[in-house]
Design a protein around this nucleic acid. Structure first.
Lengths: 153, 153
DNA sequence: GTTATTGTAACTAGAATAGTTACAAATGAA
DNA sequence: TTCATTTGTAACTATTCTAGTTACAATAAC
């Protein structure tokens, strides 16, 4: 995945939408919290919408909200939706097929990568957006009383 | 770790050295198998030498060989030595500390990353360079009789 | 119609990646 | 000693990746 922060941004905006409950959020609002450009947020929201994790609407009263409950969205859903880059890359140029090691090291490395992917997916499948909210610092937590409330960034 | 192939190259050259047994290999030879420039290999070998995984010697009869037996080098050793990049990056610019989510999402994400790292390390700790050799295609395997033999790439 | 918002294309600056040339330092052999 | 060979490393380059930015058509509510 790597030197790209798409997963972090995705989890962030999903958590914002979970936080604001039914209230739909504008890309501008979320961009302030994420500290980036609204277009970066909108691009991410498009991807998340394709993955059926959020629903967006155009128009003056538009915005985005979660497509399902926070406890029904796992970080694995997010990970898959954003099509994260591989955990590690194979050789930029194919190794020598004339060398006994070079000719099959790629297959071996793909196997290792598959094992790592399973492990990662096991972790991510066990964490939901609801869990992420619960892990936020106490003072940041949404009140127990699950009442509709304005978001505040 | 990501869009960088250093882990793949590291495992590749270590496997070449394991294959060639006591015979020390030149960076030029390994570069042919990896299909890259010898300097790229030498840079990697320097890192691996710092991590005490290989030993190199300058001079006309120089070259590199493993610092210990293939079964005593795990992929976790390699992973740590090359200082792989993070599995995923946090936000390029710090989120808003004025937003309840933005102010603590970073800590939550670091926690998630730590869980992923543990999982990855568990996998990598269980695979040695010896295992990698055993996973090579049968026709590529070094003969059972562990006799010194010239490498062939 | 006016206004606010998304979706998306096009461009940019900066960073990361690995490939390349070049050469000093080390080592062993003639 | 002198020569050949190899590592270690600096410096530069081309390419790709990343995310930031501007701009604007399409959409929807009022």
């Amino acid at each position: 995945m790597s030197t790209n922060s798409r997963f972090a941004v995705a989890v962030h905006v999903l958590t914002l939408m979970a936080w604001s409950d039914e209230e739909s959020l504008k890309s501008d609002q979320m961009a302030v919290s994420v500290n980036t450009n609204p277009v970066v947020v909108r691009r991410m929201l498009c991807d998340l919408a394709e993955g059926k994790l959020v629903v967006s609407h155009t128009g003056s009263t538009g915005g985005s909200r979660l497509a399902r409950n926070p406890e029904q969205i796992t970080l694995l859903d997010v990970y898959r939706t954003i099509e994260a880059t591989d955990v590690f890359s194979l050789h930029p140029k194919r190794p020598s097929h004339r060398c006994p090691v070079g000719s099959s090291i790629g297959t071996v490395l793909q196997g290792v990568r598959a094992e790592i992917d399973s492990a990662i997916e096991g972790v991510l499948a066990g964490i939901t957006i609801e869990d992420v909210m619960l892990r936020l610092k106490p003072q940041a937590r949404r009140p127990e009383v699950k009442k509709k409330r304005a978001s505040n960034h």
